[in-house]
Amino acid sequence: MPRDFDATSPEGRMLSIEEVADILNVCRRFVVTLADAGKLGVVERTEVGQRRIPAAAVETYRCEQEARARDALAELAAISQGAGLYGSNVKMGRK
Protein backbone atom coordinates (compact mmCIF):
# COMPACT_ATOMS: atom_id res chain seq x y z
CA MET A 1 0.00 0.00 0.00
CA PRO A 2 1.47 3.38 -0.89
CA ARG A 3 2.43 5.61 1.95
CA ASP A 4 0.69 8.93 2.34
CA PHE A 5 2.24 11.58 0.16
CA ASP A 6 2.51 15.06 1.59
CA ALA A 7 1.73 17.31 -1.36
CA THR A 8 2.50 20.33 0.80
CA SER A 9 6.15 19.35 1.10
CA PRO A 10 8.72 21.89 -0.01
CA GLU A 11 8.61 22.29 -3.77
CA GLY A 12 12.33 21.65 -4.14
CA ARG A 13 12.24 18.35 -2.23
CA MET A 14 13.92 15.53 -4.12
CA LEU A 15 12.88 11.90 -3.71
CA SER A 16 14.76 8.65 -4.20
CA ILE A 17 13.58 5.95 -6.61
CA GLU A 18 12.40 3.88 -3.65
CA GLU A 19 10.39 6.76 -2.18
CA VAL A 20 8.72 7.40 -5.54
CA ALA A 21 7.95 3.69 -5.93
CA ASP A 22 6.29 3.69 -2.50
CA ILE A 23 4.24 6.79 -3.32
CA LEU A 24 3.07 5.46 -6.70
CA ASN A 25 2.69 1.88 -5.42
CA VAL A 26 4.84 0.49 -8.23
CA CYS A 27 8.18 -1.30 -8.42
CA ARG A 28 11.46 0.60 -8.48
CA ARG A 29 12.25 -0.63 -12.01
CA PHE A 30 9.05 1.00 -13.30
CA VAL A 31 10.05 4.29 -11.65
CA VAL A 32 13.44 4.09 -13.37
CA THR A 33 11.64 3.52 -16.68
CA LEU A 34 9.40 6.55 -16.06
CA ALA A 35 12.37 8.68 -15.06
CA ASP A 36 14.44 7.66 -18.07
CA ALA A 37 11.47 8.39 -20.36
CA GLY A 38 11.21 11.92 -18.95
CA LYS A 39 7.78 11.38 -17.41
CA LEU A 40 8.87 12.52 -13.95
CA GLY A 41 10.37 15.88 -14.77
CA VAL A 42 14.03 16.71 -14.61
CA VAL A 43 15.80 13.92 -12.78
CA GLU A 44 19.02 14.78 -11.01
CA ARG A 45 21.80 12.37 -10.19
CA THR A 46 23.89 12.28 -7.06
CA GLU A 47 27.67 11.96 -7.18
CA VAL A 48 27.31 8.20 -6.96
CA GLY A 49 24.74 8.10 -9.77
CA GLN A 50 21.53 7.69 -7.80
CA ARG A 51 18.51 9.38 -9.29
CA ARG A 52 16.63 12.08 -7.40
CA ILE A 53 13.16 13.07 -8.60
CA PRO A 54 11.32 16.29 -7.73
CA ALA A 55 8.41 15.68 -5.34
CA ALA A 56 6.28 18.14 -7.32
CA ALA A 57 6.80 16.10 -10.51
CA VAL A 58 5.77 12.91 -8.71
CA GLU A 59 2.60 14.58 -7.44
CA THR A 60 1.80 15.85 -10.94
CA TYR A 61 2.30 12.39 -12.44
CA ARG A 62 0.19 10.76 -9.70
CA CYS A 63 -2.68 13.22 -10.24
CA GLU A 64 -2.56 12.74 -14.01
CA GLN A 65 -2.68 8.95 -13.62
CA GLU A 66 -5.60 9.14 -11.21
CA ALA A 67 -7.48 11.38 -13.66
CA ARG A 68 -6.78 8.95 -16.53
CA ALA A 69 -8.03 6.05 -14.39
CA ARG A 70 -11.22 7.94 -13.47
CA ASP A 71 -11.84 8.82 -17.13
CA ALA A 72 -11.29 5.21 -18.23
CA LEU A 73 -13.64 3.94 -15.54
CA ALA A 74 -16.32 6.45 -16.54
CA GLU A 75 -15.94 5.41 -20.19
CA LEU A 76 -16.20 1.73 -19.28
CA ALA A 77 -19.31 2.41 -17.20
CA ALA A 78 -20.89 4.34 -20.10
CA ILE A 79 -20.12 1.53 -22.56
CA SER A 80 -21.47 -1.08 -20.14
CA GLN A 81 -24.60 0.94 -19.52
CA GLY A 82 -25.11 1.46 -23.26
CA ALA A 83 -24.81 -2.29 -23.77
CA GLY A 84 -27.49 -2.89 -21.16
CA LEU A 85 -25.13 -4.39 -18.61
CA TYR A 86 -26.34 -2.09 -15.83
CA GLY A 87 -29.82 -2.41 -14.49
CA SER A 88 -32.05 -4.51 -12.32
CA ASN A 89 -32.98 -6.95 -15.10
CA VAL A 90 -29.45 -8.33 -15.53
CA LYS A 91 -28.94 -11.80 -14.09
CA MET A 92 -25.71 -12.25 -12.20
CA GLY A 93 -25.36 -15.98 -12.86
CA ARG A 94 -26.79 -16.93 -9.47
CA LYS A 95 -29.10 -19.87 -9.09
Rank of each mutant, 00 (worst) to 15 (best):
A67Y: 05
C27S: 14
V26E: 11
T46Q: 01
V90P: 00
E18S: 10
A37M: 07
L73D: 08
L73N: 10
Y61G: 02
Y61T: 00
D36P: 02
G87V: 02
L73G: 13
R29T: 14
A21Y: 01
M1T: 10
P54E: 02
A7G: 09
N89Q: 12
Q50D: 13
V42K: 12
T46G: 04
E11S: 13
L85P: 03
E66F: 09
A83C: 08
E44I: 09
Y61M: 04
A72G: 02
V42L: 12
V26F: 02
R94L: 13
R68C: 06
A72L: 09
R13C: 06
Q81Y: 03
A72V: 00
E75Y: 07
E44F: 09
E64K: 09
G49P: 00
P10I: 05
V43Q: 02
A74N: 09
G82H: 06
V58R: 01
L73C: 08
R52A: 02
G49N: 08
I17C: 05
D36T: 13
G41P: 01
T8C: 11
V32D: 08
S16W: 05
A67S: 14
M14W: 02
Q81N: 09
V20Q: 01
D36C: 04
P54G: 02
A56Q: 12
E75W: 04
Q65W: 12
S88E: 08
R70H: 15
V90H: 06
M14E: 12
Y86S: 14
E44C: 03
Q50C: 04
N25C: 09
I17E: 15
V26S: 01
E64A: 11
R29L: 09
A57N: 14
G49T: 05
G84N: 03
A7T: 07
R70Q: 12
R52D: 00
G12W: 04
E18A: 08
F5W: 07
S88K: 12
K91V: 09
R28S: 14
D71P: 00
A74Q: 04
